[in-house]
């Protein structure tokens, strides 16, 4: 289709996941004080890929991954046409004094991450929070929020959408959808 442009193919995708995993290992070594937290819904898919890759590279089977739902912490309740359907919350571990890596697929306005920080701190007081995103749409921030680990930075206008497609058998791609 003419209004679709592929910005990352499957090969680049694997390289990105690999690079991000190595960056995480460099900063967190054996992950004893670190927990990974994926944001529902799509950040969790990405976080799982990262976790699988980390296990493959390091052989460490003790890395903890949780999934965080931020529906009730968003700042646009009553301002949207549709009501947000909450997703599954799975945080069966303590984040008190832990180093938390928040993981999401696309960073755009930064509002989801703001809500995620609120949602996260309702589970306790982490020692520090880092942010990993697959795609950083860097020119469209509404809030002063920046990622620590970035798969790829993309310059796009508001009417465009960036979609991450998780394919079976590792056929993943990222496309830019123009309106």
């Amino acid at each position: 289709m003419s209004n679709e442009k592929q910005i990352v193919d499957n090969r680049e995708f694997s390289i990105m996941i690999n690079r991000l995993s190595h960056q995480l290992i460099e900063n967190h070594l054996d992950f004893t004080e670190t927990v990974l937290v994926g944001l529902q819904p799509r950040g969790v898919d990405f976080a799982r890929k990262i976790l699988n890759n980390l296990v493959e590279i390091s052989g460490n089977n003790n890395i903890v991954l949780g999934s965080l739902d931020i529906s009730f912490f968003r700042d646009d309740f009553g301002r949207r046409e549709t009501i947000i359907s909450p997703d599954k919350l799975d945080m069966n571990f303590s984040i008190e004094n832990k180093r938390v890596v928040l993981i999401d697929d696309v960073l755009f306005t930064g509002r989801s991450i703001r809500a995620a920080l609120d949602a996260l701190t309702s589970f306790g007081r982490p020692k520090e929070v880092e942010l990993m995103v697959l795609i950083d749409r860097r020119l469209k921030r509404h809030l002063p929020i920046q990622p620590d680990y970035v798969g790829k930075s993309v310059d796009s206008i508001s009417s465009e959408r960036v979609i991450v497609k998780w394919g079976n058998d590792g056929h993943n791609k990222i496309i830019l959808l123009k309106k």
């Binding site: 009730f72 912490f73 919350l89």
Partner: peptide
């Protein structure tokens, strides 16, 4: 189901309303 999880967290309040 979601709220059961919320009210069993260490901090039981959400800012939604």
């Amino acid at each position: 189901d979601n709220f059961i999880k919320i009210i069993n967290k260490p901090i039981k309040k959400v800012p939604t309303l």
